[in-house]
Design a protein around this nucleic acid. Structure first.
Lengths: 208, 208
DNA sequence: TTTCATCTAGACTGTGTGGTCTATAAAGTA
DNA sequence: TACTTTATAGACCACACAGTCTAGATGAAA
């Protein structure tokens, strides 16, 4: 995120005029804009302003509004997967990894530094079934989320701490809870309310 | 729903030309339309067609698109509350009432006879924070849902079966799970997957 | 320096939208 | 039969939007 960007990488620069904006930063800005407003309430002008890229450049890079949205969803998914990879490296204990993941979710859902809700959940309820390509991206993102939550549980299963069946079952169960907390948070639930839910859910995990 | 409508009730008929559509049926049709498409993707033309009412009549009755939407949300909330009232009359046992509620949710989320998802959840993730009046209606609807789920639990507490604290805690917990299942269902989860979640959650309830 | 590929700035266009307005139809009341 | 009230049908308007296009800017390659 805040790592010093390597300017002028060795990668050969293409022929024409160089972009006047940073690709990765623009991608993040586009993600944040869709996250903030939703798909339909985001205009191309919003994306142009947020990304710093020219309108035509966005069309050049992403095809159309739908392409921008799908890229945003993929970007969002990837960030979560990367975060969990890091958490699993930092924390060997399964329950503590899950505590971190769920605790970070609660913090983010109730903290003011990010847009409300979750781009994946927001988008799923706004757009599932409305467009084939978006639908596919959403299905992938939702499956990726379950798979990502599942990773620490699979590690626990490999260690013989729980069964593979429990890993599967719990990963879906915890996904449901996180998804549900997103809706609760957007309807005004505070941090302690959500944390109580997480604590109750972890009891479920520890019993497995 | 399909009960024979009493035509020409005793209520004195107002002076002017009578409405060419059924008020209650129109209200339901409006609810279904918003449920199907979401707020922003629903046009006034959609609502005119679905309700059978004239465009001007809708504006006369509801003020504007936002008023139509808020009425739809209130209508939706009321239907759920009525359903639970009935279920509590039919079934005295607390856990069995909750089983019915959650089971019906699973059936509806995976059955094809209703629009996808849940109008309350869909609308919350699409519109929370976007408009003050809609926001208020959504907060009310979400609080009503928790309160409605809470009713069988409060009845159990009054009977001394569980503590009031557990009733409060579990009502929020189960709300989170239902909300979460809505997202899961819209991302393609099948009935048995959701039913497994419900079964796991009911274990939690029985332990209280 | 010229050429070529790419990016930029923003004008432009067709379509769809929420909301209003007008003319008319259908009922009750006097 | 007039008069009043309410609903209907649909034309109408101003606006916002996604997407396209054009003219010019910028840099590498020749």
């Amino acid at each position: 995120m805040s790592s010093p960007k390597v300017i002028d990488q060795d990668k050969k620069r293409p022929r024409g005029r160089p972009k006047g904006f940073d690709d990765a930063a623009a991608k993040d800005a586009i993600m944040m804009t869709f996250w903030q407003n939703g798909y339909r309430a985001t205009s191309l002008d919003d994306l142009v302003k947020a990304s710093g890229a020219a309108r035509a450049s966005l069309y050049q890079s992403y095809g159309d509004k739908r392409g921008l949205f799908i890229a945003a969803i993929e970007n969002y998914s990837q960030k979560f997967a990367d975060w969990v990879t890091q958490a699993m490296q930092d924390e060997p204990d399964t329950v503590l990894v899950l505590e971190r993941i769920l605790g970070a979710s609660v913090a983010r859902l109730t903290g003011g530094d990010m847009p409300d809700g979750c781009l994946r959940c927001n988008s799923t309820l706004e757009m599932a079934g409305a467009d084939p390509l978006i639908d596919k991206a959403l299905k992938t993102a939702n499956q990726d989320f379950v798979d990502t939550i599942r990773r620490p549980l699979v590690r626990a299963a490999e260690r013989g701490e729980i069964s593979v069946q429990d890993a599967d079952r719990l990963s879906v169960y915890l996904t449901a809870l996180v998804n549900g907390m997103v809706v609760l948070a957007r309807s005004g639930a505070d941090e302690s309310t959500l944390q109580t839910i997480v604590d109750d859910a972890l009891v479920q995990v520890k019993q497995a």
